[in-house]
């Protein structure tokens, strides 16, 4: 092999690294899909499912999960950051109010998920402390932290906007979203302290489905 050929080969390899990664990611997803297809009664993942997102997240217990690991649960999701003093305590209270009104028997099939918009500050340790402070230690409470990029992407799916406005503060949308067992968005409530009857209705409907 001549030097020139070697360089060409290497060059080609380099140029396609990025794309190959993306494709590899896709293949992995497809493999995952293939597996879950079997487990989930041969059902194909709906196109609008958030489980099409291949991102990896860390929980308050330091475990790494794929969103798809949550398949089969009804998800109630909100984006917050733990150092927030303004809206988040009220958003967290809204989540708790919703949780309290979901019948106890249904709670096994529901996950209440807080996704951090401030992954730099909200380490798993910090999320764990937050869950303890807020008495959200039951299994149905889940706190997630991802990369800044995946967090931004995830927000686009929830139609949540957020922006860092000072070293410690973010402005952000207050939206609580409900997803069905296949990860498809079924309901959103916007605003703080709003009437959550419809949200609870959506959760119980999905659980009974």
């Amino acid at each position: 092999m001549t030097m020139k050929n070697l360089i060409y080969i290497l060059l080609a390899a380099f140029l396609f690294t990025a794309c190959n990664n993306a494709e590899k990611k896709e293949t992995e997803v497809e493999n995952d899909l293939a597996e879950t297809k079997v487990s989930a009664e041969n059902k194909e993942l709906p196109e609008l499912s958030i489980y099409n997102l291949p991102s990896t997240w860390t929980t308050q217990n330091g475990e790494n999960i794929q969103l798809e690991d949550l398949r089969g649960n009804v998800l109630v999701m909100v984006m917050i950051y733990t150092s927030c003093k303004a809206a988040c305590p009220r958003l967290v209270a809204d989540m708790r109010n919703i949780e309290k009104q979901v019948p106890e028997g249904d709670l096994d099939n529901v996950k209440f998920i807080m996704v951090s918009i401030d992954p730099e500050t909200d380490t798993p340790k910090r999320l764990k402390e937050f869950s303890i402070e807020n008495d959200m230690e039951d299994d149905h409470w889940l706190f997630l932290r991802g990369t800044p990029e995946d967090t931004r992407e995830f927000a686009t799916v929830l139609a949540v906007s957020y922006k860092k406005i000072s070293p410690i503060d973010f402005s952000h949308s207050n939206i609580i979203s409900v997803f069905d067992e296949e990860g498809v968005l079924v309901h959103q409530q916007e605003g703080l302290g709003v009437d959550n009857t419809e949200t609870i209705q959506a959760i119980t409907t999905e659980v009974s489905n």
Partner: peptide
């Protein structure tokens, strides 16, 4: 999606 337009303040903290 970092843009928070004032008209949407009902959503914005």
């Amino acid at each position: 999606n970092s843009v928070m337009i004032g008209g949407e303040s009902r959503k914005d903290s």
